[in-house]
């Protein structure tokens, strides 16, 4: 189990930052991903594996009128 933006989410071995973004249907492009407080660069979403019991913050910025 991991915590994503304060909500529980099932964990499985090999689950990446990209997998969580897809599972949560986070389509918004201006995201900041932190795993246990550590920033994950955009280029590394596919290759960054999330450990079990991690706290994941996927911060959405703002845009639009």
């Amino acid at each position: 189990m991991i915590i994503v933006n304060g909500e529980r989410l099932e964990w499985s071995p090999g689950k990446t930052a990209r997998d969580v973004i897809k599972e949560k249907n986070y389509l918004f492009p201006l995201l900041i991903v932190r795993i246990n407080g550590k920033l994950v660069p955009r280029k590394k979403y596919d290759s960054t594996v999330i450990p079990d019991k991690a706290t994941v913050d996927i911060i959405h910025l703002m845009s639009g009128g």
């Binding site: 933006n5 304060g6 986070y26 918004f28 913050d57 996927i58 911060i59 959405h60 910025l61 703002m62 639009g64 009128g65």
Partner: peptide, 16 residues
């Protein structure tokens, strides 16, 4: 109007 403050993501999604 939302143009004073658009806070939905901060509040609802990010829980910031």
């Amino acid at each position: 109007q939302h143009d004073e403050a658009w806070l939905i993501f901060m509040d609802m999604v990010n829980k910031q």
